[in-house]
């Protein structure tokens, strides 16, 4: 029963009519503000931003099989460098955005370089370590970051200042970013990502500099996190320490996993579920972190492919060879 529903969704969304579905989806999100009450629009804007964050993360996690356990670092990096430039350096909006994105790229590259220095096993560890380190910096460097209170007074662009116009602005930007991400992931570059997920050593022995490859993917992925961070700062008109906390990193990974890390739209679906759920639940329950933990455990143990799973359908392989020993092999 369960499987059938999943199958159906997979078929509708991935196989048959991606373009049709896409257009329908865009139309729905485009007319959404006209029908729903305005307090929901804020929430949906947040869904869009987190969807971008998760989709960017999924470039590393789902496609390339890397372990970016501390992605909130880069969302926070975008938000904080943007916020500090505006609030502390009194820059105007446009240059602040450009400069913040530039800072993101540079710091991404440095952290990425460091994370990729060790063995593959250490990558996730370091990713998370940098997340905690960044959280510490934010908490302690109060004159600049505002500590736990954060920075407020972040403006939105003038013409998009209202709730509904801002929603459309975010929607437009997110769609542009999606277009870029999907172009990248469907290019030869993106093909290599899947190879990386399956077997890094084989890629090396195909003459590919996997460290450099991972670094570039890392920077791109972190860049979109930075974009999401800037948008989030505008949405909430402020930068807060929750943007860098490790629980946000975990949430982003859960968005990918629940929605389906092997599909392009999985993280978006996951983002919608997690953001809406966390906003409704955390109003009533104090223990959101624990609940997220339970969700993580259940998801990982329960359904590992996520909702939008790309099933390995190619099991019915015609038999042409004589020998049918399993792939494990017996070579001594």
């Amino acid at each position: 029963m369960n499987l059938k529903v999943e199958d159906l969704m997979t078929r509708i969304i991935i196989r048959n009519k991606p373009i049709g579905f896409l257009i329908a989806g865009v139309i729905i999100v485009a007319v959404l503000p006209l029908i729903i009450p305005s307090q929901w629009i804020q929430l949906f804007t947040q869904v869009l931003i987190m969807a971008l964050f998760a989709t960017g993360l999924n470039m590393e996690m789902g496609y390339a099989g890397m372990m970016p356990l501390g992605q909130a670092t880069f969302l926070g990096l975008g938000a904080y460098s943007f916020g500090i430039l505006i609030v502390k350096a009194h820059m105007s909006l446009a240059p602040a955005i450009v400069l913040a994105l530039f800072i993101c790229l540079i710091v991404n590259a440095i952290i990425g370089f460091l994370c990729l220095r060790g063995k593959p096993m250490t990558f996730g560890l370091l990713h998370m370590a940098f997340n905690i380190l960044f959280t510490t910096i934010v908490a302690k460097w109060i004159p600049i970051t505002g500590g736990d209170v954060g920075l407020s007074g972040i403006p939105r662009p003038h013409i998009f200042a209202g709730t509904v116009p801002f929603y459309y602005m975010v929607l437009g930007l997110v769609l542009i970013c999606y277009l870029i991400i999907s172009t990248i992931m469907n290019s030869p570059f993106g093909k290599i990502a899947q190879g990386l997920r399956e077997n890094e050593e084989r890629l090396i022995f195909l003459g590919i500099n996997t460290k450099r490859y991972q670094l570039i993917l890392f920077i791109i992925s972190g860049f979109f996190a930075g974009v999401a961070g800037i948008l989030l700062a505008m949405l909430n008109r402020g930068v807060f320490s929750s943007y860098v906390q490790i629980i946000l990193s975990a949430q982003a990974m859960m968005m990918c996993l629940i929605g389906g890390a092997y599909s392009f739209w999985g993280p978006t679906l996951g983002a919608a579920l997690i953001v809406i759920f966390s906003n409704t639940v955390s109003n009533y329950v104090f223990y959101w972190q624990g609940i997220l933990g339970v969700i993580m455990i259940v998801t990982v143990l329960g359904f590992r492919g996520g909702i939008l799973r790309k099933r390995s359908v190619k099991t019915n392989v015609p038999d042409v060879s004589v020998n049918k020993s399993p792939s494990g092999g017996t070579a001594g």
């Binding site: 372990m67 975990a250 969700i295 993580m296 990982v300």
Partner: peptide, 19 residues
Amino acid sequence: KNMLFQLILTMGIAFVMAD
């Protein structure tokens, strides 16, 4: 299984334990 799942699992356990 994939090491990523193990990492996420222990992270989830950390959250649950903290709360």
